[in-house]
């Protein structure tokens, strides 16, 4: 049997033939046991291949895919919002909120630290018999407070902050506070 005929036989076994061709091959098979056996063999190969069933991934597979996908989307932009178009407008607002929160947090920490220092200083000094000790915040003059703001490390490291992914849209080095 020629190769072309075998290909037709294969097409018949795989049900790939046009109805007219299929009819012709079927008629031929009725009188040709060799071709019948060949067509049957193609079908057997097909059935045999089905024994190689789908293969389950390892238990950690899904978690690994999620880990691989996250940095490029959901978690890279912190809130998972900016990986998708249409929500990018929120970035500047979030940056502003973060800067304000950071500023307030630093003020709070500084204030708390000074409050803790003041009683210690007061106890090491001889107490004036008739002057009651004032709360530490009230002891600070206006000039001293301005110096404190100027020395806030967060603002000094503005460039460092600007390197953060979310703050990268801010202009670099333009609002640095000089001492």
């Amino acid at each position: 049997m020629s190769c072309t005929e075998r290909e037709k036989l294969f097409g018949y076994a795989q049900r790939l033939l046009e109805p007219r061709e299929e009819h012709e091959v079927r008629a031929h098979l009725e009188s040709c046991p060799t071709c019948r056996a060949a067509a049957e063999e193609y079908r057997k190969v097909d059935t045999l291949l089905e024994e190689w069933t789908p293969l389950e991934p390892s238990p950690s597979f899904d978690a690994r895919v999620r880990e691989a996908v996250e940095p490029s989307g959901a978690s890279r932009s912190l809130l998972g919002l900016f990986g998708f178009p249409g929500l990018r407008w929120m970035a500047p607002a979030l940056v502003t909120v973060l800067v304000v929160v950071a500023f307030v947090a630093v003020l709070h920490v500084r204030h708390g630290r000074r409050a803790a220092h003041a009683p210690a200083q007061a106890s090491s000094m001889p107490a004036a018999p008739d002057a009651p000790s004032a709360p530490p915040t009230e002891t600070m003059g206006g000039e001293e407070e301005v110096k404190l703001y100027q020395n806030l490390f967060m603002l000094e490291d503005y460039d460092l902050l600007a390197e953060f992914d979310l703050l990268s849209e801010l202009p670099k080095g333009e609002t640095k506070v000089d001492n």
Binding site: P54, L55, V65, R66, V69, G80, G83, G86
Partner: peptide, 21 residues
């Protein structure tokens, strides 16, 4: 494409076995 991560999870669920296989 529109930003629905749950749909990506669904595609992962559907194609994890076929792709690994």
């Amino acid at each position: 494409r529109a930003g629905d991560s749950a749909s990506f999870e669904e595609l992962l669920r559907r194609y994890r076995v076929p792709l690994v296989s």
